[in-house]
Nucleic acid binder design. Structure first.
Lengths: 357, 357
DNA sequence: CTGAAAGCGCTTACAG
DNA sequence: CTGAAAGCGCTTACAG
């Protein structure tokens, strides 16, 4: 027979220790002034018995659930694992749980999902909207992770700078004729990435954009993008705005007999899980989700705490702290693998290399 | 100025309606005997004011949080989106929220994650363990989604039958020399899939298994699996236990100049998001996550409800219901796309086709 | 059919 | 430094 069949609650613990519930609460939270000696005794007993405060009791009393909501436009998004993992980790470190909500790509459902989360009493919400959906003002604290050029954005990767990384890399390898591949001209993220690439290109470099049409997207199947033809026209580098598109380009080129990276280079964005497992492994640009998540969570907790402490001084301090946060867009990293190599078709000298850290 | 600045709570609503809180509660839950007329009036007012019961209050009183925990061995798992989406959907339909926990592949952390979920007061937990990790008995109701051959499994896809689907498909196409590709001989899921394939193969068919070594896995990069050589030895079909491996095989073959599906066929498992977007699109086997999730959630809710209702009759009814549930393993579906085609190297006649629905 | 009362477990002023 | 008391919002026996 084990000593403790079930875990005690606050008052049982208090009775066992012959002190008041208030004192136990104070000792454990470190808030009230309790003698160090007593506090220690209480903490020891609590640990021994495995006391865990009831979230329900605390929530009812404080109005805080210590739970955050995470709403994604489409949970099936391949980036979701990375995002969810990073958010969960950061939230957990800050003492919060994470409730997920899926709006399945539907804008109307996104509103409903947010509503449900609020009904469940979350203290704040992290939203990753799709296609620049503007998030309406809601009662709860919100952190939006989108593109830096999206109004209302809280924090995100610096997609523009990520694009510059790609451009410099390709330029350094001698490429002078690029095809940029995306599927949604309305996406801020994609436009930032493409804009970043273009911003680094001298006028002597040709760079056209191929927007994959929705129906080509849907079919997926046999729908060729005509990349072989582009290659024959002189394109030596295919820069996609996401690994998904890069993979499609890579397989299409390979299938058409174009050797990657010997004859053509391919780059992606996001460093999805399989990107390093394919042959050749994909050169891509990764976002620092850990940092992004940390900043999103920290922005949220600051607002949440400020809510309870209408203390002038504190609030001001806190708010200014968030205001002067290093940046709201965190830099991306180029991951050079094997789908990129020197341009073969033309013998051009690499331009004076910029900073390439 | 809008009429309602903030949403009312139960007693405010009661006061507004000039009835007792108990009556409002009863009317809204439909439990107590309240005159239909009054009940209607109460519901109307509640809807008008947007009344939402406080989860915290309810949880404290009933001991139920209406939240389920979802723990995954590794949130970065590419299957995660599908699983999370299906679970979230099923749970939401059953009136539950979903709290995520990540054990990051670490067995010790899995225990910790479960612990944290319990501290947060979840009513039950859905676990997708990795590598046949046996889930220790914990206090809460648990549903395990693993392989049918894993002890303690609650529900899962019928990986064995999925393997049979692959075998029949390949056989029908005339393939007589297969290479089965996996990376973990200790995985029940992988063994089931491979076992299912083998179980359908006549002895005249050669089928060898290639277990990718961990270091080859890790390197990922340039590490070739030597598939070209296998092809030259006569292998015409490469059946991987997951799309990830299939993708690796496909890109390696394509890169080595082997035409898919003209010269060799490739199949995967799981129907990951990008599987239909590559060229050629991948033939794979998909699990019915919707159904799996529904069964997991329903198994959970049955146990949870049985807990509160020690009512002999009800419990027995319920438990028998779960016992005679159609099956605990749900069938998989073959998705034929473009990486599979007739065997070219040998002119063998297709065997009498089995049922191929 | 309806209501008054108690209590779920916690924390927070407020006394002492 | 410590404790008694109130109350967060709900539901559930129990009376009437």
């Amino acid at each position: 027979m084990s000593t403790s069949r079930t875990r005690p609650n606050l008052s049982q613990l208090a009775t066992l220790l012959d002190v008041s519930a208030a004192t136990v609460s104070n000792a454990l939270s470190g808030k009230g002034r309790v003698s160090e000696e007593l506090a220690e005794r209480i903490r020891a007993k609590a640990a021994e018995l495995g006391y865990m405060p009831s979230q329900a009791g605390r929530a009812l009393r404080t109005g805080r659930t210590q739970v955050l909501g995470l709403v994604l436009p489409d949970i099936a998004n391949p980036l979701f694992p990375q995002i969810a993992q990073a958010i969960e980790h950061a939230a957990s470190n800050a003492g919060y749980g994470v409730l997920i909500a899926d709006s399945r790509g539907d804008v109307a459902m996104q509103t409903k999902a947010i509503q449900q989360l609020q009904d469940r009493g979350v203290d704040g919400i992290v939203i990753v909207p799709r296609r620049g959906t503007r998030v309406a003002d809601i009662g709860s604290p919100v952190a939006v992770i989108d593109s830096p050029s999206t109004p209302g954005n809280t924090v995100s990767a610096d997609h523009w700078q990520g694009g510059q990384l790609v451009a410099r890399h390709l330029l350094d390898l001698g490429h002078r004729d690029l095809l940029l591949i995306g599927n949604n001209p309305a996406s801020n993220v994609q436009n930032d990435r493409i804009g970043g690439i273009k911003s680094c290109l001298p006028s002597s470099v040709r760079a056209r954009v191929l927007w994959i049409e929705p129906h080509e997207e849907a079919h997926g199947k046999g729908c060729h993008l005509g990349l072989k033809e582009r290659f024959e026209e002189g394109v030596t580098a295919f820069a996609a705005v996401s690994d998904l598109h890069a993979l499609r380009a890579l397989t299409e080129l390979q299938g058409a007999g174009v050797r990657v990276p010997d004859e053509a280079s391919v780059t992606g964005f996001d460093d999805l899980i399989w990107s390093s497992a394919i042959t050749p492994a994909l050169t891509t640009v990764r976002m620092d989700m850990e940092t992004i998540a940390e900043q999103a969570i920290s922005a949220l907790t600051i607002v949440i705490e400020a809510q309870t402490a209408p203390d002038q001084e504190k609030s001001v301090l806190r708010l200014s702290k968030v205001a002067k946060a290093d940046r709201t867009s965190v830099p991306m990293d180029l991951v050079v693998r094997q789908t990129t190599g020197p341009a073969s078709s033309q013998a051009v000298k690499a331009p004076p290399a910029g900073d390439m850290e």
